[in-house]
Design a protein around this nucleic acid. Structure first.
Lengths: 251, 251
DNA sequence: GTACATTGCGTCATAATAACACATTAAGCG
DNA sequence: CGCTTAATGTGTTATTATGACGCAATGTAC
């Protein structure tokens, strides 16, 4: 795959790549989709290159689809990373050796790559991580237990989370991360996990319902310890409207 | 200049450029620094290319300094633009003809360029627009009267203003755009111009002073019609602190 | 049934916001 | 000089949003 790209690099935008920070929510954990580098203890963000005949946003959608199979999810460009030393020679050489590509043909990969960061919000349960090849491991990992990442991918991930945190004040979040039916406590846990702090249960309910994007269902969650919480769903129309116009206040 | 770059394009990041939206404030107008394309009726944003041995942020600072001479101003990356058709063949050919560069040498310019957008906030009075060469016109233009721009530069400008508007809710603005001493009505006009709506004078005063970044000076503005307004300055330390930690509420 | 953890609904004090009233100041002008 | 005019400076009030908390209801475990 990568070998094909390197050997046909004239079909790809030179010196430019895309990296995706794909967020999912499960078991009260904010998870990130990471790829294990074969035969090493480091991981990387799912990324890809940009065909010269594709818009960068389209290329980002492609990367996301290849890895998650999900479509029509929330995907947003958040920053572009271009330090001179962000991809060092050492790393490039290792890749070329691993792929058994001779130095001359692999020259393309050795230049400085600028990478455009996108973050995505996807429904954990509908997403089945897909490996590009058999000895590649791709896995959901709790964002609090992210292992060592290659290059500046940790910086990219941190920036993505930072952006998500800020945007939580400007837009509603949840439609993409939660299943269709969910409880208020679940939604609150999502907010708490992203913001990394506790919120008052009662104030949260008031604030989130006042936005007017929730529909209370005539149904309770089953098989739970203690009192069964009510189920809610998002009112898609109103949700989209608020997404477009923005919230007014912060959390 | 551009000719040098094209002819020595191996020293520059391929297919990648930087465009700067430089904002200034004067006469109650939000102004943008634009460059006139010689012998045409279109204008462009000041931009540049990225030396392969420079971080993209450094290259952006260079572009800004070359055009304004000012240093240490507010400069922030806001988005990256990469539609396939954003720089069309037609435009590239015109540039090459104008610069009298033969097609083979100019091939580098004809590929799709992805551009990284930065916006800057500078003190209008301290900034003297600098042309790169004698028949180039560079000028401050009211953002409400921006003429036709090349390529997707209008889209870039719009996105920059949009970003500034959003960030007004998250950070203080003014330190970079106003002279050292200024009046509250001037600061209010700046906010009103950016937001494109009227704000209540009295509520604005209360809100802006409550942030705690202003120092009331024992001095009034002179030579003004009607009642002379008091002068204020920013408390740099507190300003920086709020800039780092962010505001809490919106306007 | 009882203990317990969690949900659902409500209260209250305080802070932030929006809308507005009135006094103050300086320039322009007869 | 005194009056008008158009700004600025300061305060008031009603409404809304926020933060902190009380208490009853519900379903599980024992």
């Amino acid at each position: 795959m990568l070998k094909d790209i390197i050997e046909n690099n004239q079909n790809y935008q030179p010196g430019l790549s895309i990296d995706c920070v794909i967020f999912g929510f499960h078991d009260n954990q904010l998870k990130v989709l990471l790829i294990k580098i074969p035969h090493q203890n480091t991981w990387s963000l799912p990324g890809g290159f940009i065909p010269i005949d594709q818009d960068i946003d389209t290329a980002a959608v492609t990367v996301l689809n290849e890895r998650t199979g999900v479509e029509g999810v929330f995907l947003r460009q958040f920053a572009t990373f271009g330090k001179v030393k962000r991809n060092d020679q050492h790393f490039g050489k290792e890749v070329l050796e691993y792929l058994k590509i001779e130095e001359e043909k692999g020259k393309w990969l050795m230049q400085r790559f600028v990478t455009i960061g996108y973050y995505a919000l996807v429904d954990f349960l509908k997403t089945i991580p897909k490996s590009a090849d058999k000895d590649q491991v791709i896995e959901w990992i709790d964002h609090k237990e992210v292992p060592e990442l290659i290059l500046d991918h940790k910086e990219i991930l941190d920036k993505a989370l930072d952006t998500l945190r800020t945007e939580l004040n400007l837009m509603p979040v949840g439609y993409n991360l939660l299943p269709e039916k969910f409880t208020i406590p679940e939604l609150q846990k999502l907010y708490e996990t992203i913001l990394d702090r506790k919120l008052d249960r009662r104030n949260f309910l008031r604030k989130i319902t006042n936005i007017g994007i929730l529909t209370k269902l005539d149904e309770k969650k089953s098989n739970v310890a203690h009192k069964a919480p009510n189920l809610y769903s998002f009112d898609k129309d109103k949700y989209e409207e608020v997404l477009k116009n923005g919230l007014t206040q912060g959390w």
